[in-house]
Computed example of a mutant assay.
Amino acid sequence: MEVAEVQKQYIRELLIKGRKIEAIKYLRTNFDLTLRDAKRLAELIDEDIADDEYIKRPGPFSGGGVAILTIVFGLVGVIMLGVAIHLYTSNRSFVREAEQTVAIVVSNPSQPVFEYEINGQTYTYYSNVESDPPSYSMGEEVPIYVNPSNPNDVLINTFMDRWFLISLLGGMGVIFLGVSMLVFFAARAR
């Protein structure tokens, strides 16, 4: 089998540009070679190419855009997970040391005001969470945790007050970190 100089040069250019698969396909179709023989011939031609002749195509991380995006997504994910873990641990330690009691909604169910009693003294807690429609109704009893050393320090024992922010930040953190890792490994596989 004889390869003309023009054909060899074309194959060489494909290899220099990093298009080895196209070079093998060209050899198979134009010279009726098996895949193994076409690959072997392409590798022989490739051996004659000096390292400095190869055209270095910019990889997905060389331009900076994808790399920066991957790093930013990863950092945002790690920060969100860190905040979620911090909230969970501080929430857990607060509940461990707190006294559990029942508070009663005394006004404005959409941004409720709670009254509760600790050691025979009545306290008022103004919720900073507002909802429409209201989450509570007037006179509703709600379980709460109260810091015994500071009875004004309260944690309402509902999903929205205890777990919603932790779940949201943790879930978003996992998603951001997952996307970052997927993009990173997909870019490396190329």
Rank of each mutant, 00 (worst) to 15 (best):
D37Q: 13
M138Y: 07
M160F: 13
R40Y: 06
V3M: 12
V154T: 13
D132F: 10
R12Q: 09
D161S: 14
T29I: 15
G65M: 09
R36S: 14
E99I: 11
K39P: 08
I156C: 08
F176S: 06
L15C: 02
P143D: 15
S110V: 00
G77S: 08
K17T: 10
G170Y: 02
L81F: 01
V183E: 07
G77V: 06
L14W: 03
E47P: 13
W163C: 05
M181E: 04
Y26F: 14
Q121A: 15
F114Q: 00
N108Y: 03
N119M: 13
F185K: 09
E140N: 07
Y126Q: 08
M138T: 06
V142M: 14
L35I: 15
P60A: 03
Y88G: 05
E2G: 12
G59P: 02
K25G: 03
E97S: 07
L15K: 03
V146Q: 14
E115F: 05
L168Q: 05
P133Q: 08
R92D: 06
G74N: 07
Y136F: 03
G139N: 10
A42G: 07
G18S: 03
G59N: 02
D48E: 14
N91F: 08
V66K: 01
S131Y: 07
K56Y: 02
V113D: 03
F164P: 00
Q7M: 09
D46Q: 12
V179W: 02
A84C: 00
